[in-house]
Nucleic acid binder design. Structure first.
Length: 260
DNA sequence: AAAAAATTCAACCGCTTTCTT
DNA sequence: GAAGAAAGCGGTTGAATTTTT
């Protein structure tokens, strides 16, 4: 059906996609329309079949990119807000160029957008100082990977049958405080993100009068490890108990833990 | 007003990871 | 478990736009 629409508009002379080759460059509104139509009918994914089913002369990669970065209905348009900018800076200082990871904390923003924004606004300012920190992060990252492998090996050795584990595994020592509590009026993801990051700052100052960067790093490193450990995290809603005064943090997504 | 320089950002590329058969 | 396909990621490019000279 979509193919028919396209044929009407582009003429009937273009049936041999393989011979003609893939189109490149900026997308036309007609192409956008076809891709949107395709996603409506077939959902996201299977991008390589877009060309076959719609007649669009774009490869799967191009289609996916166009959808993810531009056509997705949940994308937030317009300028990056100061609030979002703070988050980008904060997360980049911890995670470096892990744009997709950073993007997960900014609903409606794409990794490409954040990457472009950071390069445009901050790259020059931080170039010199970031060179060293990038390297140290890379070293830390490798170290963590190694430690993680060791842990996994340990788990295998202990012959834990994870298939029978119905509840979440016990947090490793030192990670017990990772309870995630949001005020119950925080339904909006943006609010939750805001709350999380402000809480992060508060928590570091609560734990000690003068926050040390090393402790803060450890906390983020923990988060990063947890992210790997559970497969995926997302900010979610739960009730904040004022009495417990627990350090707010990320809430683990309610899925079966992923081990590998 | 026009040319040059700087900036922005959509899109591509190559590589890696994950999924499917 | 292996191989191929698909999806995802980060770096880079280059055309369009904006700002500066």
């Amino acid at each position: 059906m979509v193919c028919e629409i396209f044929s009407e508009q582009m003429g009937s002379n273009w049936g041999f996609i393989e011979e003609v080759g893939w189109r490149k460059g900026p997308w036309t509104s007609d192409e956008d329309r076809l891709l949107i139509e395709y996603v409506k009918l077939h959902g996201e994914g299977r991008w390589n079949s877009v060309a076959r089913l719609t007649g669009l002369r774009r490869n799967g990669k191009s289609c996916r990119l166009r959808w993810v970065n531009y056509l997705r209905p949940d994308l937030k348009r317009g300028q990056i807000t100061p609030h979002e900018e703070r988050i980008i800076l904060e997360l980049h200082s911890r995670w470096g160029n892990r744009w997709s990871t950073i993007a997960r904390s900014l609903p409606g923003r794409t990794d490409n957008e954040i990457k472009n924004y950071w390069r445009t606004h901050f790259k020059k300012k931080t170039k010199n100082s970031s060179d060293n920190s990038e390297k140290s992060r890379a070293r830390l990252w490798k170290k963590q990977q190694f430690q993680q492998q060791q842990q996994q090996q340990q788990q295998i050795n202990n012959q834990i049958d994870i298939k029978n584990v119905m509840s979440l595994p016990t947090m490793p020592q030192g990670k017990q405080e990772m309870t995630i509590l949001y005020p119950n009026n925080m339904i909006d993801q943006q609010d939750q993100a805001d709350f999380f990051y402000s809480s992060l700052n508060n928590s570091t100052s609560i734990s000690q009068s003068e926050p040390s960067s090393s402790n803060e790093d450890i906390m983020w490193d923990d988060l990063w490890n947890l992210d790997d450990f559970y497969g995926h995290f997302m900010i979610n809603t739960t009730t904040y108990n004022n009495k417990t005064n627990t350090i707010p943090c990320l809430q683990q997504m309610a899925t079966t833990p992923t081990f590998y």
